[in-house]
Nucleic acid binder design. Sequence first.
DNA 1: GCCACCGATATCCTCAGGATATCGACTCGG
DNA 2: CCGAGTCGATATCCTGAGGATATCGGTGGC
Lengths: 312, 312
Amino acid sequence: MESRHLRYALALAEHQHFGRAAAALGIAQPPLSQQISALERELGARLFDRTARGVFPTAAGEAFLARARRALAEMSAAVSDAGRAARGETGRLRLGFIGSALLELLPSVLGTFIRDRPEVRLGLQEMSTRRSTAALLAGELDLAIGRGAPRGAGAEDLVSVTVGRDHLVAVVGAAHPFAGQAKVSLEQLKGQHLIVAPAEEEPAVAAWLAGLLGEGADVPERAGGVTEAWDAHTIIGLASCGVGVGLGPACLRVAARPGVQVCEVSPRVELPELVMSFRAQDRSPVLAAFLDITRERCPGVAERLERRLGAR
Amino acid sequence: MESRHLRYALALAEHQHFGRAAAALGIAQPPLSQQISALERELGARLFDRTARGVFPTAAGEAFLARARRALAEMSAAVSDAGRAARGETGRLRLGFIGSALLELLPSVLGTFIRDRPEVRLGLQEMSTRRSTAALLAGELDLAIGRGAPRGAGAEDLVSVTVGRDHLVAVVGAAHPFAGQAKVSLEQLKGQHLIVAPAEEEPAVAAWLAGLLGEGADVPERAGGVTEAWDAHTIIGLASCGVGVGLGPACLRVAARPGVQVCEVSPRVELPELVMSFRAQDRSPVLAAFLDITRERCPGVAERLERRLGAR
DNA sequence: GCCACCGATATCCTCAGGATATCGACTCGG
DNA sequence: CCGAGTCGATATCCTGAGGATATCGGTGGC
């Protein structure tokens, strides 16, 4: 039995007339008679009573037609669901990101994405760059936003593109000696207890910081000790209560609150870029849609992305 | 798109391998490749990722497959539902009957029917012979049980068969003069106030009663007045409280209760037969199943039914 | 009783679906 | 680094199911 038989039976039930049903189906009357009678033979049951006043379904016909309607509805739903999924209108996107992405980049991109694709299920999880890279490779995430391009085993399976740049700022509590200054120098920082991202979790930031504060040496040795904080709000919170000098991207200003002051670091120092990564072989249309929006929202991302995607 | 495409896509998703899926479908591999790719072309979306490790559905494929499974389930349900309806295992039977049918005939037939066809929805309604005949002709009933074969307009569209015979008995209250007698004669009845079925509703009974008690004359004129009661329990109830002499079929004994006495009428008088009727053109398998059971349960019905059905 | 309508049947034809053979890409082991 | 093996895609041919046309048979209405 093919779905054709269902369509024919439904048309016949609707028109109660072989000739008109056939015309509506765009075929001649004899083939319709044949197909209906073949269907009845296959089912071993008469589906229609042919009377002088018209063609009417039997009890078996009614039962059959009810199911046939649902079957055809499922089929057309299959087509439209597949289309919507292919266009990225439905589906799922699991996104892992570092906290600072939530300060500037994500609010704008996510807002647009959620408005454009209301039926996509978004999974959002703040996590360190190391964890998001691992989760991406393990297939637990579809997209990761971190600092610095992923390196190490499996990194060649990922495509990464820079989506933001920040320079370094220092965050201090109101009682801190730096509080009055608009700027602090690198030399001044070297003696301070620093609040920074955890070295193992943010390898790019750690390596960069080590190079900045003391070539080749561990950060704690050159600074007055280090406290590791996993996210922007913790850095600010710790700085505000005088634990030390928080170091982070300039976008920390967005999260600043009364009782803390954000100082520029002089000379101006660029942090490792904010990088968006995904699996090179991932053809998910939802991912593509997200990348499209990122392209529109982040100047310069478009060209860099094209260059990398061309290689796929 | 045909249901074949759904079957092929599901097989491919199951085996994750074109060759094995094709083998499972009983076709060669190239046609499967062609059909899948035709389906993808029609949908405008790739449904499967062909990788070195196997064939896996894309997001669009997953969406499509979920619907496809349901569509095919509906189709196979359509087949089985139609079959069951055709065999009379599901469906509906609307039965109208006079109260006395409930005393002997229906309990046995209905018990078997409900056990054999638990999924058939039974519509049972006690009603007069006149009403059940009209409802049958109007298509509001599928089967009617009454006294005497239906006559009048439309009766030629019905098939009727005798399913039971009864002789006349009289029912009196304990205080009635007849109460001590085992038998009453027709002569004795003539002077009594009678409780009988309503003349307009039970034409066969009324005509028969008129003939019996006084040729050509109305029953009330020859008897001591008449009370019309629509059902057996009312006849017995009225008789028990001394309203008069209830007349009805011998099966009334089944419903007799303390305080009433059932007397044979002498000489023995046969009542109009209990008759089962249905539309001659009704091919409902549920009806056929009910008739089958009646055939088994009621000796003699089988041959009479065959004779009448042969004419259809 | 004749005609008009409608579904069934007969006959032919076309093309879609399937089979066979082969290709091209990729993997893996020596 | 290369050859064998695997797997999906492609090329080509063939068959039969589905469809078209013509006609039949039955039924109801005028």
